[in-house]
Design a binder for these strands. Structure first.
Lengths: 377, 377
DNA sequence: CGATTTAATGCAATCGATTGCACGTTGATG
DNA sequence: CATCAACGTGCAATCGATTGCATTAAATCG
């Protein structure tokens, strides 16, 4: 119904699935050499071709619905116009917005993204990176970086444009885009202190990940700066950023009787686990204990109670990473120094934080519900 | 160290980023022709080669860390070992598990996935499909199908292996993998009826999408079969599957005074919107009105109230789609008839449903909170 | 008006693999 | 001992683009 295509059927058309038009087809139709067509079609070389022929080539190639063969292009030029995105698990809802950020920036420039999951598994990460580079991606965005990440360092050293997002490697030669976690933790602590909390515990993340390390570090520095005393009974270390670990750590905290009135969790999922552990002990959030998250992942505004958290710019992180790579991709030289971006965060106060119960931090209270939280020493 | 490569240095080696090994390099190192290496490396043709040489080739290619150039392979064979996944929005958490299902099945077979988003936009879907096929993907998984989808039909007719997931096209020649929505709606209605509900409203989805159409259709058929009477004041049509539309439709329902004690929503996000609208009117869920979702997307077990919903096998849908495509990809002939799979669902009862207030459906109740829901006619 | 520059196009090599066909060995057969 | 299979390898074409260089035609100059 679209008009064109006279039934002369120049291309065999035997089976019906008429072969895709190639440069040669266009050249024949216009009556010039393939190299002329190639030049006419490439904006960078179009000026070499007579105006008239160039437009004729454009016309015909549209008529024939010519689409360059990416394999041939890639074989010749060594560029695939494909980038790789490595994430721990696409199912974890903090990653999809980052991925979209990357794709939305890259797509208009003709790049598509290959997304692979590693499940936090070292070997799978190595395999993923290896697969992607074997596939000849032009660059990589890695959300699964560990602080010590030999694969990533090797990749960067080898010259592949690569940028980590959300996390960083300790190796400063690998570029990164992260959020301002230090400031995020500071904002959150300030919020809790303002509410009146003095005994604040934390559920820290995996210290082999920059997120875990930086957030815990910021917790220690800021509590100290604010004049709060933190004892070992007030920190729990999660082995993974998930609900089960949040639950486990909260129970540990409760069992130790840290007497804390608030718990700052290294991310939202830990916080969700912590809240569920509190409920399991018959405690309420924020009634008995305030709990805070980090990331502001999707839906945490709908949970019970709506989570007070730090919003990181998921989408913006992806965008920034993509922009950085685009720039790298257009540099002919090896490129300048690695770049480390830190994007601003925002405190989102919802209902999982409230002022502490009167006197709850002063010692064993009459309320049996909070007796677990009394000061031990 | 690897023997060969006299320092004649045919490959510059100036910068140091030593070029990737090619078939030619392996051939030279072993002392045979590239075609021999190619055959030795291909399991299907290995038998043509002397055992000894074959193993030698394997050895050397490992030593040299030989990785076939995908562009060259693709150019020659016309297969990219890449599939395309088209989703409305990767940020919508029902899709990531499906994508993982696809990737987890495909990856072991050497396929990688290109993921693109369409934002429910016809043009963007057309562009996405066109981009993917221009990139030469071997097959496509499409989660963004509309009931009338000319692009998809064309693609299938043209011979590209394609399968829709979660949704279907009306064109039966396009294969699909969906969940048993009819049964899901039936289970949910049975659950509500068992709780004692008689006046049940629905917030139906976009009727241009198979999900919207099938779920609404099942609602009508099953309510009728169960002897329930449904009037026009009991159905709201959402234009999109999101919270805002859920809210709007719920408000419409309330304004119309349908007197319903339960609302079956076509998906979870509509349900979340509906609950929020109820709250906005000072009504409680499930106290005043029970609300049900569909899909069991991530986190709906944590929201307030935890949502009663139908669990569809997100991951399984992806897996099934991938398995289907793998099979298609291995057929040499055009392939048999299109396949339409329907995967089983499960009723998940949580706290957003409860028995209706006594007499609430019998007429205006004394409770001002539910007076909005009285029977009008 | 002939010589020389400039502009536009064609030629052919190349990227790295796959694969039909030809060739040379080897061993079995009559 | 000559003949012929069968087997294992090598040769060379091919996939579809890009690009340095050669070539031709047109334009400029002296």
């Amino acid at each position: 119904m679209t008009g064109g295509k006279p039934e002369t059927g120049k291309t065999g058309s035997a089976a019906g699935a008429s072969r895709r038009a190639t440069l040669k087809d266009v050249a024949r139709a216009v009556g010039v050499h393939v190299s002329t067509v190639s030049r006419a079609l490439n904006p960078a070389t179009r000026h070499l071709i007579t105006e008239e022929i160039a437009t004729r080539v454009l016309e015909v190639s549209r008529e024939l619905n010519y689409r360059p063969n990416p394999a041939a292009y890639s074989l010749r030029t060594n560029r695939s116009h494909t980038i790789g995105i490595v994430v721990p698990d696409i199912t974890n809802s903090i990653f999809p917005p980052m991925i979209r950020g990357v794709e939305d920036v890259l797509a208009p420039h003709g790049y598509a993204a290959l997304v692979v999951n590693t499940d936090l598994n070292r070997e799978r990460e190595a395999a993923a990176i290896s697969t992607l580079s074997a596939r000849g991606v032009d660059a990589m965005v890695v959300a699964s970086a560990e602080r010590e990440d030999a694969e990533l360092s090797a990749l960067a050293k080898q010259g592949t444009p690569v940028v980590t997002i959300n996390r960083r490697t300790d190796d400063a030669s690998v570029s990164s885009v992260i959020s301002d976690e230090i400031e995020g933790v500071r904002l959150m602590l300030a919020h809790l202190v303002e509410l009146g909390h003095r005994r604040i515990a934390t559920i820290a993340g995996n210290q082999n990940l920059s997120t875990g390390q930086r957030r815990y570090d910021a917790f220690l520095r800021n509590t100290l700066a604010m004049g709060l005393h933190i004892g070992p009974e007030q920190v729990g270390f999660a082995n993974a950023f998930n609900e089960a670990e949040g639950r486990r750590c909260m129970e540990e905290l409760l069992a130790r009787g840290s007497g804390s009135t608030a718990v700052l969790c290294a991310n939202d999922r830990l916080a969700i686990g912590a809240i569920s552990a509190l409920r399991g002990r018959g405690l309420s959030c924020p009634g008995d204990v305030s709990v805070t998250g980090f990331n502001d992942m999707a839906m945490v505004d709908c949970i019970d109670p709506p989570l007070t958290t730090i919003r990181i710019p998921h989408y913006g992180i992806g965008q920034a990473a993509a922009q950085f790579l685009l720039q790298r991709l257009n540099e002919t030289d090896g490129g300048p120094a690695p770049l480390h971006q830190v994007l601003p965060v925002e405190l989102i106060v919802r209902a999982s934080t409230a002022a502490p119960r009167k006197g709850s931090a002063e010692g064993p209270s009459g309320d049996p519900a909070v007796s677990h939280m009394r000061i031990v020493r």
